[in-house]
């Protein structure tokens, strides 16, 4: 069947050109979907087979000067759990879906409020009082229907964290409170999953990557017991949309780097940004 699929992929692929004039073999979304029906396979797996034969799904064509076919295939085979689908998590989950991370688990127990509309990508007027996680899944399905997406409209806690993140290649901390950030860190370490952790407040934000044996959040927030009562500066500063989007974009860059095993990650380093004076500084944590 594999040979038959490769033969069909070659038949339906067409010669295309990148903007710089170099040629490539491409497959359209319609043909991916047709082959998915023909072979009774998920569309994502058709795209993985296409890339294995150096045929580029058109939806990823503009990734390809930065990624190899193998990189793109690795992303399609990757699973990321995004915890919090409000400000950071909205932009993070949409960006990961667009770039082609194949499986996304989206977790958020909150419902949209009017005060979310300034910055949370999936919040719209008709969706006030709707589940943030359910809205995220709907949006991801309309952006990239080949992504295998599930949502959990619940908060992460000690009783469910390990089960919810199980099988992930990376967890994305897009949370808005410190106790749950530490809960996610504990579960990620136990499950040996790298975690990318971002936080924002006003015009400032910070971002780091925490691997299972790293100290992690304690280096930023101090002792978890004391941190539980710590009020983050965002309580005073509020949250601005361009800060959220900037930090969410940086968080995606880091997640993709880790999924693709690239160097120069933010492991044991903290990227601090302050858009007030355009500060971007990367600092050693250990």
């Amino acid at each position: 069947m594999k040979d038959k699929l490769f033969k069909r992929l070659e038949e339906v692929s067409t010669e295309k050109q990148f903007p710089d004039g170099t040629a490539y073999a491409g497959i359209s979304m319609a043909n991916t979907n047709a082959l998915a029906r023909e072979f009774k396979m998920p569309a994502r797996k058709i795209d993985i087979s296409a890339l294995a034969g150096d045929i580029v799904p058109e939806r990823y064509a503009r990734n390809m000067k930065s990624f190899s076919a193998l990189d793109q295939k690795t992303l399609l085979k990757s699973r990321v759990t995004v915890v919090g689908t409000g400000g950071l998590g909205g932009t993070v989950s949409e960006t990961l879906a667009r770039i082609g991370v194949g499986t996304l688990t989206l977790i958020d127990g909150d419902f949209f409020e009017e005060s979310n509309l300034n910055r949370q990508l999936f919040s719209t007027e008709p969706l006030i009082n709707h589940s943030k996680a359910a809205a995220a899944e709907d949006r991801i399905r309309s952006v990239n229907a080949t992504v295998e997406v599930t949502h959990h409209a619940c908060n992460l806690d000690d009783s469910n964290a390990l089960e919810l993140i199980s099988g992930s290649d990376v967890t994305a901390d897009c949370l808005d409170n410190l106790p749950t950030r530490f809960t996610l860190q504990t579960a990620s370490k136990t499950a040996r999953i790298p975690m990318v952790s971002a936080a924002v407040g006003g015009q400032s934000g910070h971002l780091t990557a925490i691997f299972p044996d790293d100290s992690g959040l304690e280096l930023i927030f101090g002792d978890p017991k004391e941190a539980a009562s710590l009020k983050g500066a965002e309580q005073t500063l509020g949250n601005l949309p361009y800060t959220v989007t900037t930090v969410a974009a940086l968080e995606c860059a880091e997640i993709v780097k880790i999924l693709l095993h690239k160097d120069s990650t933010l492991r044991n380093r903290l990227l601090i940004i302050d858009l007030n004076d355009y500060t971007f500084e990367t600092l050693r944590l250990n």
Partner: peptide, 10 residues
């Protein structure tokens, strides 16, 4: 010298 209060918003 840089002094930064951690932020926690998402």
């Amino acid at each position: 010298v840089g002094i930064f209060p951690p932020v926690g918003g998402g």
